[in-house]
Design a binder for these strands. Sequence first.
DNA 1: TGGCCTACAGTGGTCAGACCACGGATTGAC
DNA 2: GTCAATCCGTGGTCTGACCACTGTAGGCCA
Lengths: 249, 249
Amino acid sequence: MLEITRRDTEESQSGAARVFTFFRDRLLSGDLKAGDRLLAERELALALSVSRPVLREALRSLAMLGLLDIQHGRGAFVRAADASVLGQALTLCLAPEPNILDDVLQARIAIECQAIRLACERASERDLQAIAATLDTLVGSLDDPERGGESDYAFHLAIVRASGSASLMKIYEAISPLLMRSHVERRRDTFREPAITSGLVDAHRQVFLALAKRDPDAAETSLRDHFTIGDELRRRNLISAYQPKRKNS
Amino acid sequence: MLEITRRDTEESQSGAARVFTFFRDRLLSGDLKAGDRLLAERELALALSVSRPVLREALRSLAMLGLLDIQHGRGAFVRAADASVLGQALTLCLAPEPNILDDVLQARIAIECQAIRLACERASERDLQAIAATLDTLVGSLDDPERGGESDYAFHLAIVRASGSASLMKIYEAISPLLMRSHVERRRDTFREPAITSGLVDAHRQVFLALAKRDPDAAETSLRDHFTIGDELRRRNLISAYQPKRKNS
DNA sequence: TGGCCTACAGTGGTCAGACCACGGATTGAC
DNA sequence: GTCAATCCGTGGTCTGACCACTGTAGGCCA
C-alpha cells in the first residue's frame, strides 16, 4: 500500500530529489510565493512521508539555489527569485574557460546594445530621469575611483532597467559579478587621467542624449563607440605599461 | 582543541554551507576537474570532520546545481560545467515575470546580434562551413515543422558558436529552454505557408552571406530584419486568427 | 575450458531518535 | 512600567544502524 506513494507523485526519482522537484514545481506554478513560510521540518517530513535528513537535503539544496531562506530558530521562508544565484551559476559554468574576464564584456555589450534600443522605444520619463541622475553622480565622482566605478555601473544598469525587459535585466545582473571582477582586474592596468575622465563623461552624455532623442541607431552606435574607446584605452595603457620608461622616473 | 577547526577554514558559516563552499572553491580553482571521483561519503565526512548527514546535504546541493554526479553504488563524480542548470536557474528566476515567453526573445536578439558581429571578425572557415551546413538542412526540411524548427535553431546556434565567445554561448544555451517553450507556444499561432517559408530561407541566406562577407553592420541589420519580420508575421497571424472568417470554411 | 551464476564488498540511500543552539514570546521580579 | 530569566518551537548536528545498488571475484555447471 505504502509503496504506491512512489507512483502517485509520478516521479521515478526518489527521496530528496522527489521532494526537491515537489517544491520546485510549487514555486514555478506560483503555489508558493515569496515570503511564505514552510511548515516545520518535522511536520513537513511527516507530511511528505520522508525522514527528516532526506527532507533537509532537499531543503538545503533549494536554499543553495537561493529559493529558500532557512533561518535558525525561526523557520524556512520562500525567497524572491534572486539573480545572485544566477550570477554564481554563471561564474561556475564559465570558470573553466580561459580569458573569461575579457570575454564577459561581449555579453555585456550584447545586453546593453539591445537594452538601449528597447529603451529608446519604451523608456518612461522617470527612467530617463533616473539615468540622468546617475550621470550627475558620475560627474560628481570623477576624482574618486571607487565611487566613480560605482556610478559608472549605475549608469549602465539604469539603461538596462529602462529597457523594461526582465530577461535582459536578469542576465545583466547575472553577469555583473564577473563584470566587477573584470573591472577590478582591469583597474590595475588603467590610469585615470583628467583627459580620460573628461572623455568618459562626454561619452556617457552622448549615449544619454541619443537615448533621450529616442534614436535607436544613434544610441547603439554611441554606446558601441564608448565600449570600443574603453577597449583601446585599455590596450594602449597596457602597451605603455610594458614599454621601457623614457621620461618620468 | 577540536573547535578550532571552525577558525582554520575561516568560514563563519557552519556545517553543510562550509562543506559546500569548500567544494565550490575547489571547483572554481580547478583543483577538482570534471571526471574526478570523490572519496566515499564516510571517508569524506571523517576527513572534513563533519557527520555524514551534513556532508550529504552539501553534496546533494552540489548535485542539484549540476556540479556533481552522484551514482548509487558507485560514487560521486565531478561533472563538467553544464548550461542546463543555468537554464533551470534562469527559468526559475524569470518564472514570476509576466509575458516572459515574449520577453526572452529580447535576450535572444541581444546575444545573436553581438555574436554575429564577433563572428564577422573571428569565424573560421570551419565555422562558416558549419553554418552553411545548417542552412542546407534548413532548406531540406521546409515541409517538416518539427525538423524545420530544429534546423532553424541549429542555424542560429551555429552563429553564436562562431562568435568564439564562451559567455555568449553559455547564456544562449541558458535561455534556449525558454526559447523552446516560446517557440512551441508561438507555433500555435503560426501557419507555415509556402510564401512564408521561402521568405524564411531567403532571410537566413541573407544573414549568412553578410557574415561570409564579414560585414558586421550588414550582418546585424539583416539579422534584425529577420527578427522583425518574424515578429510582424506572428502579429499578423494572430490578428487574422481572431478576425471573423471570410473565405475559407 | 568456457560461460553463467552467486556471494561479497563497497558505495550511496534512508531511517530513527536524541541532543544542541538559536530566536522569540511569555512570565516573573524589580 | 521596565527589564530580566525562562520556556517553547525552530533549525543544526550527531550517532549508528540498516537497505539498495553496483561491480567484481569466486565457484559452479555444462
